[in-house]
């Protein structure tokens, strides 16, 4: 029973949503909408486990005064602070806390965006050092990788205005639209076939690793 009930539930929800794609009429489309709404609510509860896990780890650090407990204190403080701001804003703006002017919008604008932009910008330096290691033209494959990257980089930001860089810019666009897109399409079709097979395996109960 401990395995059968979840397997039956997976089968029923998967099939109900799948059928609605082929019969987009009442009651199938309504059932699909309701089930997807339910999935959002239920997945929201998984967040509780995530919060519990994060807070337990850092509060234990703080209690034991392990090395770097101060950082755990900062993380916990800002997590609780921003979450409180989020709840306050949601109550104030009746469920639409990201309305411009709300406190959460202020946090998003002045903290989340600049911090994440800086973090990702930091990667520019590491990506350059990774490129140095990956792009050494030792083999044909690495050489192709190097040529493609250089063409795209120089083509996107031409160093000067002349015939060569104009050509490079157009060549870069062609590179992105034809050879790059050809491989991307091949990968996308392969991924979609894999996703389809995996979804069928899950719905039919062949794939059960998520129940462990």
């Amino acid at each position: 029973m401990r395995r059968q009930i979840p397997l039956i539930l997976t089968f029923l929800t998967g099939i109900a949503i799948f059928i609605a794609f082929f019969i987009p009429h009442k009651p199938f489309n309504e059932v699909q909408d309701i089930l997807l709404d339910w999935a959002i609510i239920i997945a929201g509860f998984a967040l509780l486990l995530g919060i519990h896990s994060l807070l337990r780890k850092h509060i234990t650090h703080i209690k034991k005064k392990d090395g770097g407990w101060g950082y755990s204190l900062i993380l916990t403080f800002f997590f609780v602070g921003v979450f409180t701001v989020g709840i306050f804003s949601a109550i104030q703006y009746k469920g639409y806390s990201l309305t411009p002017g709300s406190l959460l919008y202020f946090v998003y604008d002045y903290m989340v965006i600049p911090l994440s932009a800086t973090m990702f910008a930091l990667l520019a330096f590491f990506i350059a050092s990774a490129a140095y290691r990956a792009f050494r033209a030792r083999r044909l494959n690495a050489t192709l990788l190097l040529i493609a990257a250089v063409v795209v980089m120089l083509g996107r930001v031409p160093i000067m205005e002349n015939a060569f860089f104009n050509f490079l810019s157009r060549f870069s666009d062609w590179f992105m639209f034809i050879p790059q897109m050809a491989a991307k399409r091949g990968i996308l079709i392969g991924v979609a076939l894999g996703a389809f097979a995996m979804s069928l395996r899950i719905i039919l109960g062949i794939e059960r690793t998520y129940l462990q």
Partner: peptide, 22 residues
């Protein structure tokens, strides 16, 4: 880094909390 993690998680949780629960 820890401030960033705290702020990002707090922000994401409050957005999901709002969409899923409120």
């Amino acid at each position: 880094e820890h401030l960033f993690v705290g702020v990002s998680v707090g922000y994401s949780v409050s957005v999901v909390y709002q969409n899923a629960f409120i």
